Amino acid sequence: MIRRFGDSPRPDVAYRLRPGAYAILPHRGRLLVTHQAEPLPELQLPGGGIDPGESPVQALYREVFEETGWLIARPRRLGAFRRFTYMPEYGFWAEKLCIIYRAHPVRRLGPPTEPGHRAVWITPEQAARDLGNAGDRHFVSRETHCL
């Protein structure tokens, strides 16, 4: 059974399954996260939806690059969680299946290519407190001892 974070699913809503891959990216005592400006400003683990025909790891490499401009290496799956939310940028309600990895940021290739995103370095403690959803905060808190 995959743990759920956030609101319970609403019985009056048809949710679309939205699998995604997200990364905890430690480097020199800090974490690389993304700040997304829209629809509401928030700090997030870099990552996002897995496109058709794409593996979770392929999506992870692509999404981290798009949202941070960084190349990553050695992803290791930590677990997964679900959350039910409205995605205003896509106009639908989603059951997000969030697969969480730990990986190593190895080189900045340029600025983020995803509009409205910027790469931010923060402490693990700040991430555990300020990331935009409880699932991300849970996984960062679990990893803090080995960051």
Rank of each mutant, 00 (worst) to 15 (best):
E66D: 07
M87V: 10
Y90M: 12
P124W: 01
E89K: 07
E114S: 09
A73D: 14
R76S: 11
L60F: 11
Y101N: 12
I122Y: 00
R102F: 07
V120L: 02
A128T: 04
F92P: 15
W121G: 05
A73G: 10
I100Q: 00
G116M: 07
P75Q: 13
G91K: 13
E125N: 14
L71E: 06
L71N: 10
R76V: 12
A94F: 05
A127Y: 13
R108T: 08
L78P: 09
R83E: 11
Q58D: 14
H117E: 01
V120S: 04
P112W: 01
E95G: 06
F84W: 06
F81C: 11
R82G: 04
R108W: 08
P105T: 03
V120W: 04
H104A: 12
R76M: 11
R83W: 06
A94M: 03
W70N: 00
E114V: 13
R82L: 09
I72K: 04
F81K: 05
E63F: 05
R62A: 00
G110F: 10
T123Q: 15
W121N: 03
L78W: 13
H117P: 02
G69Q: 00
P115E: 09
R102Y: 03
E89N: 06
R74V: 13
Y61L: 08
A73R: 02
P88E: 13
A127W: 03
G116A: 05
R129W: 15
E67M: 03
R107N: 08
P112L: 02
H117D: 01
P124M: 13
V64T: 04
L60P: 03
A94H: 04
F65W: 06
Q126C: 07
E63N: 08
R129S: 15
G79F: 06
W70E: 00
